[in-house]
């Protein structure tokens, strides 16, 4: 199989429009059937092993999980748990992005702020917010405020650092252009600095989204007992393993969906960027 990596794509490109469409269709098919087959094989083996009693008793079989998830998605409890997790996620993530972006802009444009902020960032960034989770929950309780503080404590750094890097990356020629054509301060921010930094910020935002979900689920599990993490925490204590694994799977799917959604948003917002251009010639 090695060495054939590029061959299909190359032959497809060599053909005309119809052949290219067919080639693309075939590639899409490969992207679908290969993982589908692998998944079927893995889940099949797991199911067989579970039926034969060869898996640990605490690990539910795929059929049990599917049944549980099939029933759950029809129940309002499941969706209120998802909703609670999403609400915490949105709140904490929004704070991280807004504050991170604003501070990053300040530090990127102003050397003094940069020098004051940098040591603080370098000091606190490597400390995961989970370290001070016990304190925050003791002091601020298990409400949404605690979750927001913890999420922001973990998720602000990628946005902040990426924003600074993005602002510093503004092309000097473009900066000259805005001066030569007497752009106002606001125009310069809106049309030069912000779009230049946008691809960097987007990367930071996607990393922050993932971190935010991790911190939200952790606080739910350890402290607040709400949301998907709360469901898992209860299931863990009561030994309902189907619920535990099923909800875990749902959290994983939620993570994938959030990341994909942000990826789509990024693609639309940065349609002009070299990596996303359509019809560039």
């Amino acid at each position: 199989m090695t060495g054939t990596t590029l061959a299909p794509a190359r032959s497809a490109r060599a053909g005309g429009g119809a052949a290219r469409r067919r080639g693309r269709g075939r590639a899409a098919l490969r992207a679908v059937w290969a993982p589908a087959l692998l998944g079927a094989a893995l889940f099949g083996a797991w199911q067989l092993a579970a039926a034969a009693g060869a898996t640990p008793g605490s690990l539910p079989s795929p059929a049990d999980l599917a049944t549980y998830l099939g029933e759950s998605v029809l129940k309002s409890e499941f969706w209120s748990a998802v909703g609670s997790t999403m609400l915490s996620w949105t709140a904490g993530f929004a704070v991280s992005v807004l504050v991170g972006c604003a501070l990053g802009m300040l530090a990127g444009l102003n050397g003094v702020v940069d020098r004051l902020l940098f040591p603080v960032v370098e000091f606190f960034r490597p400390i995961p917010s989970i370290v001070y989770l016990p304190l925050v929950i003791l002091v601020a309780g298990t409400g949404r405020l605690s979750v927001m503080v913890l999420v922001a404590g973990g998720a602000i750094w990628p946005v902040l650092l990426q924003t600074v890097a993005g602002v510093h990356d503004t092309d000097p020629v473009l900066r000259d252009m805005t001066r030569a054509y007497a752009f106002t301060r606001r125009e310069r921010m809106r049309w030069c600095v912000l779009p230049s930094a946008a691809p960097f910020i987007a990367t930071g935002v996607r990393i922050s989204a993932t971190i935010s979900l991790v911190v939200v689920v952790t606080t739910e599990l350890v402290g607040t007992g709400k949301g998907l993490g709360g469901v898992m925490s209860t299931a863990y204590q009561t030994g309902s393993y189907v619920v535990l694994f099923g909800t875990g799977l749902a959290a994983a799917v939620l993570g994938v969906l959030l990341d994909q959604a942000l990826g789509l948003l990024e693609k639309r917002a940065l349609h002009w960027h070299a990596a996303y251009r359509e019809g560039a010639r």
Partner: peptide
């Protein structure tokens, strides 16, 4: 190609979820 979507799913599993399931 075959592993990509499954790896994405596993990678996206929040760490604490992994922790609890592995504890079990």
């Amino acid at each position: 190609r075959a592993t990509k979507p499954w790896l994405t799913l596993l990678r996206s599993t929040p760490g604490p979820v992994v922790v609890v399931t592995f504890l079990v």
